[in-house]
Amino acid sequence: RCHVLLQYLTWSDLRRTPPAGALVTTLLQTTGYAPTNLGSLNITFDPTSGVVSLHPLNNSTVSANVLSLLKTVPYNLSIFTVDSLLAPHGVDLMASEAGPPSPPLNITRALIDGHNFNVAAAMLAASGVVEEFEADEGGAGITLFVPTDQAFANLPSTVQLQALPAEKKSLVLKFHVLHSYYPLGSLESIVNPVQPTLATEDNGAGSFTLNISRVNGSVADR
């Protein structure tokens, strides 16, 4: 994640880096595994040597020089080779593996403990998708938009969610889940507001997407 920049850059872009450097957000930063902005990289360019370098914040012992452009898809993707492995702040590449991992998140229990999400918790249990959500949470992460009990109560009487078969409940729930972790700050400044959901993955591109926007200082999804 520390090696993935969330910005399309060409060789020309890198060589136009100002003398003070340029701070670029990485996938590590947006997935919430780094505090504040310590998951970002500072890109520098030495006009004398022509060397472009990448520097993790607050880790002066590690840096990498960009060697070559391996592949590019214009305005979409650039793959560069570097001469060193980057380690984000707080990661010691020489240290042995840490202690036992944190226990997995119990999403249903978290909703019940929230005291206002009992209907959503019941739907999760009835649909059987909670295990899938929790498995995804251990990878790239997920973002759930969970309706409150009052939101369910406000539905028209003709909408009978609890009467739906398990596969339909699963689809409704997956429509409320993004297949990546987004902290609130990232949602407020998201570049591409139209995001696929887990339901999109099951039903094909362009279907069951969410449009994320800011409305009156709050984040809204439609």
Rank of each mutant, 00 (worst) to 15 (best):
Asn154Tyr: 11
Ile190Glu: 02
Asn203Ile: 07
Leu57Ile: 11
Asp113Gln: 14
Leu111Pro: 00
Val66His: 05
Ile107Cys: 02
Asn58Cys: 14
Arg1Ser: 15
Lys168Gly: 07
Ala140Tyr: 07
Leu28Cys: 07
Gly185His: 15
Asn118Lys: 05
Tyr181Ser: 12
Gly39Leu: 01
Leu23Ile: 14
Pro147Phe: 06
Leu27Ile: 08
Phe208Asp: 02
Asp92Met: 08
Pro156Ala: 07
Val4Glu: 11
Gln150Arg: 12
Val172Thr: 07
Asn216Cys: 14
Cys2Phe: 02
Phe45Met: 03
Ile107Met: 06
Leu85Lys: 11
His115Ile: 09
Gly32Glu: 09
Val66Ile: 14
Leu9Thr: 02
Lys168Ile: 15
Cys2Ser: 06
Glu188Gly: 06
Val146Trp: 01
Glu134Ile: 03
Leu171Ile: 15
Leu164Lys: 07
Gly217Met: 04
Leu105Ser: 12
Thr200Leu: 03
Pro88Arg: 01
Asp149Cys: 10
Asn118Val: 05
Ile212Glu: 00
Glu188Gln: 15
Ser40Ala: 08
Val91Ser: 05
Ser40Val: 02
Val66Trp: 01
Thr81Pro: 01
Leu93Tyr: 09
Leu6Ile: 10
Pro165Trp: 08
Ala34Glu: 00
Val119Trp: 01
Ala166Thr: 13
Trp11Asn: 01
Trp11Cys: 02
Asp13Gln: 04
Ala199Ser: 10
Thr44Ser: 07
Thr36Gln: 11
Arg1Cys: 05
Leu85Cys: 09
His3Gln: 08
Glu132Arg: 05
Asn116Met: 06
Asn37Thr: 13
Ala199Arg: 04
Leu69Val: 12
Ser78Met: 09
Leu5Thr: 04
Leu144Ser: 03
Thr148Leu: 06
Leu178Gly: 00
Ile43Val: 14
Gly206Ile: 06
Leu54Glu: 00
Gln162Asp: 10
Leu124Glu: 00
Leu6Asp: 05
Ala125Pro: 01
Thr30Asp: 04
Leu111Phe: 06
Glu131Ala: 09
Lys169Gln: 15
Ser102Ala: 15
Ser40Gly: 04
Pro101Cys: 14
Gly114Ser: 12
Pro165Gln: 13
Ala120Ser: 09
His55Gln: 10
Ala220Gly: 11
Val219Ser: 05
Leu184Pro: 02
Ala140Trp: 07
Thr44Glu: 06
Pro56Met: 04
Leu14Ser: 03
Thr25Met: 12
Thr48Tyr: 12
Ala64Arg: 01
Gly32His: 03
Leu105Val: 13
Val62Phe: 04
Ser12Arg: 11
Pro193Leu: 06
Ala220Leu: 14
Trp11Gln: 02
Ala140Cys: 12
Leu70Trp: 11
Tyr182Arg: 15
Arg109Cys: 07
Ala20His: 15
Val51Asn: 02
Arg15His: 14
Ser53Trp: 00
Thr108Phe: 02
Phe175Glu: 05
Asn65His: 09
